[in-house]
Design a protein around this nucleic acid. Structure first.
Lengths: 362, 362
DNA sequence: TTGAAAGCGCTAACAC
DNA sequence: GTGTTAGCGCTTTCAA
């Protein structure tokens, strides 16, 4: 092919590479108006595109950032990605996407890959406990890191964008316990996901605060999947006998997928939702509102979180030392069809759309 | 920070950069066993990561490819991405993800960006009619392109991975018309998406072939969104009067989103599905099976298509001239709860999972 | 088996 | 305002 280089342009314009470079980078000074125009013309006419690699090598910046997510095919991650991608692109950065499949080893490989691509920064929506060491690898290389929706290393004050899970849990719990005689089943997430841990601990804290005994609150150990949510719920319905109605009247799942599974189990058992049992999920994945009945859930401003992480990272890359170091977003409780006293149909929830995220900074 | 360079390693090992480079690249010859071991040790110990940019500049290959999709947040695209990402990563390539938001202008920018990143190839799941010119831009630069699930420029024989939409439509139509007295509403997609056009033309071809008159087949102009599917369906139900039952007993939507909207409209109108009206969608997005009733649909092996596009691109990058130039995948008809005489519940459709994609090559 | 030197395409001091 | 000269960190002939 023999791609055009800056030298070719310089030759055609009868100037030096430096001058072309100055035009390319829109430097105000250093080039006369006439020369500039002439070079511009040649640039347009040839459609010359300077090599980002060569430029990166010379400047020490690749103008790209890595985004590591557990699983693109999750209903959750794409929103994070799209929020981040947009913000980054507008700032002239491109996105190197890494999918770990929730495998810590693959996550390590991704990080190494990003290091050798010399990304200017990394947004990490991570899993696993090796993450701490992996992040340190990046830090050692001087690569700014923003944690996205995951806490790593309890103590370390790292930059990050998080959801206020304590608040989210409180919203759901206060709603479910708004009336007396509530008996709740909480389906928790896996113990190795930080969001899951936070949500579970928040439920437990509230239970202590309110003096809930084992009769009022049962916690089931889930894993964020539909199947598990479904299985746990069928077992809970059957209880020790096969009696009906079920020994509880409210379900709170640590994510929407498990809530979905739970709904399925309830339906199969002929339990009416929300009549006999109210159900609240967590996340507000796009399909939550499409279910029948549409799922009531703790909504997180996912896309905004992605965007916020990109903004934070951009500031770090620019060399700022942002205080505060973390952005904590507030979840909202969205009541739809799986709870009582709320819009029974998706139709009525047109006003569901996020009304601008709350940025509460710590 | 002062990152380590190959020169530092060379100095520590008391050898030349060349020698280190040879070890780095696992060249069999040219380095004695002892030296090699010594260098290896230093490499591990320092955790040295060579700069992909410098390497790329020297070799002329960035070992990265661009993937352009309309919208990550679609239920459809993530599967394509994950299929492609995996294959590429295994081959040592990383993925530059570009989200066009279905905006042809943004798509142009993405392509320019990828060119100046000097990606080794591009996978394009495109939109719009300017695409032809944009692709030519890449071709002019000598960048291999694989079209993914989109046809561009009717005549040009470009490399690509496609779905056999004619076959998919036939499967659905033959099923729906398996009994006499069927009156079908076909909800088509937008006229500027190639898949949409193919599906619509296939329906029309079949209608001619079978001599279906306007009484048996009504085509509605949709746009692939839930809302439009819902609105079109409610209008169709009301028909010219407000009579019930509706003037049709089958609905075929050109994608699942519109089928979803149609289901909602039917439910709101109190029409029983599949009792009074059978519904078939297209795509088999992950949530199709989670609906109640689970959606019958024409399933495409989305993830496999992503993977296939990556494989094809990899071969092009390797300099092969693959014949055939295109891979056409076969869709399957998945009968679930919105059609009669099939598994009425998602539970029964455990065997739904793709049984290996059919690769029919043209 | 090893190394010296040139060069990939660009930017950035520092002249002129 | 413009050009010269050095690199950026690697690979790759070509000699030794």
């Amino acid at each position: 092919m023999g791609r055009l280089t800056i030298a070719d342009i310089a030759a055609r314009a009868g100037v030096s590479k430096t001058t072309v470079s100055r035009v390319l980078n829109d430097r105000a000074e250093g080039v006369g108006a006439a020369t500039r125009a002439r070079i511009r013309a040649i640039l347009d006419q040839t459609g010359f595109q300077p090599s980002a690699m060569a430029r990166g090598l010379a400047t020490g910046s690749s103008r790209s950032v890595g985004l590591i997510v557990p699983d693109v095919a999750n209903p959750f991650d794409p929103l994070l990605i799209s929020g981040a991608e947009r913000t980054l692109n507008e700032a002239g950065y491109s996105l190197l996407l890494c999918n770990t499949g929730s495998d810590p080893a693959k996550q390590g490989e991704c990080i190494r890959l990003l290091i050798d691509k010399r990304v200017d920064g990394v947004i990490l929506d991570s899993v696993g406990l090796q993450a701490e060491a992996q992040v340190r690898l990046l830090e050692r290389e001087g690569v700014p890191v923003v944690l996205l929706d995951c806490r790593i290393g309890r103590r370390a004050q790292r930059h990050g964008v998080f959801l206020d899970n304590r608040h989210g849990v409180r919203l759901a719990m206060e709603f479910l316990f708004r009336r007396p005689n509530r008996r709740l089943v909480f389906i928790s997430g896996p113990p190795d996901a930080s969001q899951s841990v936070e949500r579970r601990e928040s439920v437990e804290a509230l239970a202590r605060e309110w003096g809930l005994d084992g009769d009022r609150l049962t916690t089931l150990e889930g894993d964020f999947t539909i199947e598990r949510g479904c299985r746990l719920m069928s077992e809970a319905i059957r209880g020790r006998g096969g009696r009906r109605p079920p020994p509880f009247n409210a379900v709170f799942a640590a994510n929407d997928m498990m809530a979905l599974g739970a709904l399925k189990a309830l339906r199969q058992a002929g339990v009416s939702v929300p009549g006999e049992v109210e159900v609240i999920g967590y996340d507000d994945i796009p399909f939550a509102r499409l279910l029948d009945p549409p799922l009531s859930t703790v909504a997180q401003p996912t896309r905004e979180m992605g965007a916020a992480s990109a903004e934070l990272l951009l500031r770090l890359i620019a060399g700022e030392k942002p205080r505060p170091k973390t952005v904590v977003m507030k979840p909202r409780l969205v009541l739809r069809g799986t709870t009582l006293g709320a819009a029974p149909d998706a139709e009525a929830s047109q006003s569901d759309s996020y009304q601008g995220a709350n940025h509460a900074e710590l």
